[in-house]
Nucleic acid binder design. Structure first.
Lengths: 238, 238
DNA sequence: AAAAACATTAACCAAACATTAACATCTGCT
DNA sequence: AGCAGATGTTAATGTTTGGTTAATGTTTTT
């Protein structure tokens, strides 16, 4: 997975250290927002959606734990890493109670922090991966469930789709009314782009056309030498 | 949530330290299995289902990283904590690359370890879909009690289920009307995903279908190459 | 130690799926 | 018009996966 451009909220009261760390993270392709204290941190947190929060523990007005607790009230998911100068046991325990994901004692190695950040973000990503991909589509009167691999036409029994049929129709649906380049389907679905896979794809296009024949508002057009286009009449090409 | 009786695999070659740590964890209501080296650790891992692995990095025959990699091949979910005597940066980075969830330098504070363990287990528990707290299910006209391993059809004697039958049906029920991936059942129930376990699972599917035949509103469908789907007619696919 | 319960492996068949072949048709081009 | 390459379609062939029953191991119970 790629952690590029993930949004990080960094709350750190020491302006020098904060600026340096922010720049270091930006150089490593994160999208960093810096807040100078707990108050400001919470305001910024409410205004945006972050993939990770890095909180300094020792801060004036509002310390890191208090801020973490407020953040947790709003969002029970977002990972939190604490930064602390002292490595007092009580502090560490307190941090975990508040729901920290990790803990770092200053001075820390910047590469280690980077690794922790990536590990934590990837962990979160892999947990939510099941539902972030679209798998249901409306195609004219049809309904496609690409997870269970069936295509339903109101009144009829659902049509079971083979894996290839399913992926191909899904890819067409993702480009509804627009060109779906031949090459795209071949590289993504067949993982190879040659004469035979191309012919195979044509066979599947024929199968899909047969399924979709029931609704004359829906058809798969060929764009010679380019690819295919799933058109649904009554819908603009946008 | 409660972390009581969670199963921990502890792999530590120093017998004194290992025994002490094991006892300490047992006192704190964990169910601990101790392995003396990487080999033994992997054998024990394959034989059981653990909620957490604590691995010493420095071990004869097979070091902690190698073991972690093997564990990850079998199970991409289980949390791993590394213990290491040295706090070398390279080691820490290596650990995170292998998919560690946390890192502890010896000597460490036992209370901190405990807190980390709880934090990590709770985090996993809140994510995982395999809700092992539920044990009663309504499946069409059937009632499944997966604790007592009974499947009841109104009017008939309850059918006694074998452990495998029971776990498989439970897993299907947890995904009612949705896809239950083959791989999921194999890794969770059979703890291994290969040709033979897969064939074994098919045998169990046949057995379950036989039991469920009495209610024609209930059936187990196959989704070729993906897994199975327990459908209860009259219920939407959601 | 024998029996019962459970789990795995084997063997065979059927279904599902993917690819290839063969031939018909269409498209853009000169 | 006529050609070449691309596409449409159906059928045949080949491969993988699943369904089922029975035989063989293994573990637990009696």
């Amino acid at each position: 997975m790629d952690t590029t451009n993930k949004k990080i909220l960094l709350v750190e009261d020491d302006p020098n250290f904060g600026a340096v760390l922010k720049d270091y993270l930006i150089i490593n392709d994160f999208d960093v927002t810096l807040a100078k204290n707990g108050m400001e941190g919470f305001e910024k947190f409410k205004k945006d959606n972050y993939d990770l929060c890095i909180l300094d523990v020792m801060m004036p007005y509002k310390d890191g734990y208090t801020l973490a607790r407020e953040i947790r009230e709003k969002n029970k998911e977002v990972p939190i890493i604490f930064l602390t100068a002292k490595s007092m046991k009580e502090d560490v325990l307190k941090g975990y109670k508040v729901g920290a994901d990790d803990y770092l004692n200053k001075p820390f190695d910047s590469e280690v922090l980077l690794m922790k950040i990536k590990a934590i973000i990837m962990r979160k990503a892999s947990e939510t991966k099941t539902d972030n991909t679209r798998f249901e589509f409306e195609i004219g009167k049809f309904h496609l469930n690409s997870k269970l691999r069936f295509l339903t036409f109101p009144g009829d029994e659902p049509i079971k789709l083979s894996p290839k049929e399913n992926e191909l129709l899904k890819m067409l649906a993702l480009h509804e009314n627009d060109l779906m380049p031949r090459e795209l389907a071949l590289t993504k679905i067949w993982r190879d782009d040659n004469y035979f896979t191309s012919r195979s794809m044509d066979v599947y296009i024929a199968k899909l056309r047969k399924y979709l024949k029931q609704d004359d508002e829906v058809e798969i057009l060929n764009i010679h030498g380019e690819g295919f286009r799933l058109v649904v009449k009554g819908k603009a090409a946008e």
